[in-house]
Computed example of a mutant assay.
Amino acid sequence: MKKCHVGPETIRMLELGHPWVLSDRYTKQWPVGESGELIALVDDKNHHLATALYDPKDRIVARVLDHNKIQLTVEWLEKKLLQAKLLRLHARLDETDAYRWLNSEGDGLPGVTIDRYGDYVMLQLYTSGWDIHLDLLTTAVQKVFQPKGIYRKLRPQETRALEAKRRTKEYSRLIAGKPAPVPLQVQENGLNFLVDLREGLNTGLFPDQRRNRQEFSARVAGKRVLNLFAFTGAFSVVAAASGAQKVTSVDVSAKYLDIARENFSINRINPKRHEFVVGDVFTELAKMQAQKRRFDVILFDPPSFSTTSKSRFSTHGGTSKLVSATMPLLESGGLLISSSNHQKVSMDDYMKELRRGALQSGDQLKTIFTSGQPEDFPCSVSFPEGRYLKFVISVKNQ
Rank of each mutant, 00 (worst) to 15 (best):
D363K: 15
A218M: 14
S371Q: 07
V21W: 03
T232G: 02
R59I: 09
F206K: 11
S35V: 11
T27V: 05
L359T: 13
P271D: 01
D376R: 13
D376F: 14
A91N: 07
S217R: 04
R294K: 15
L226H: 02
L330K: 10
L49C: 06
L228Y: 01
D107E: 07
E375C: 11
L134Y: 10
T113L: 05
G357H: 01
H5M: 13
N202A: 12
S265C: 03
W76Y: 12
P302N: 11
L329E: 13
P378Q: 12
D119C: 03
A164V: 05
N212H: 06
T27G: 09
T326V: 15
L125S: 14
W30K: 11
H90D: 12
Y126P: 01
E158I: 06
F377I: 08
V42D: 02
G118I: 01
L38W: 05
L162S: 06
I266Y: 09
G108H: 08
L123D: 02
D280P: 02
G318Y: 07
Y256H: 08
K287G: 02
L354T: 10
D348P: 09
P384E: 07
L86E: 13
L174A: 03
G233Q: 02
R213V: 01
G243Y: 06
G17T: 02
G204A: 09
K292G: 10
R268G: 09
V277S: 10
G111P: 01
R59M: 10
L389P: 00
Y120S: 04
K80N: 05
Q343N: 11
P156T: 08
A40I: 01
R12E: 09
R198E: 12
R356S: 13
T203Y: 02
G333S: 10
M288Y: 04
T27M: 13
Y126D: 04
K3P: 03
V297H: 05
V182G: 04
D94K: 15
S311F: 05
Q29M: 12
Q291R: 14
T203Q: 09
S242Q: 04
K169W: 10
N103M: 03
P384H: 10
G36F: 13
E215I: 12
G334R: 11
P374T: 05
A260S: 08
N267L: 07
W76K: 08
A239Y: 00
P384S: 09
D66E: 11
W20V: 00
H342N: 14
F300G: 00
S314D: 15
R160V: 09
R211D: 15
E105G: 03
T27K: 07
V247R: 00
I39Y: 06
R160S: 08
L201W: 13
T139Y: 07
L134W: 08
N103Q: 08
I114T: 03
D363M: 13
Q214G: 08
V395C: 10
L201K: 11
I393W: 07
L335Q: 06
K246I: 09
E163D: 11
L162T: 02
E215D: 11
T10L: 02
V141E: 01
A50H: 11
G333P: 03
A98R: 09
A91V: 04
D66L: 05
P147I: 04
I266H: 06
S35R: 14
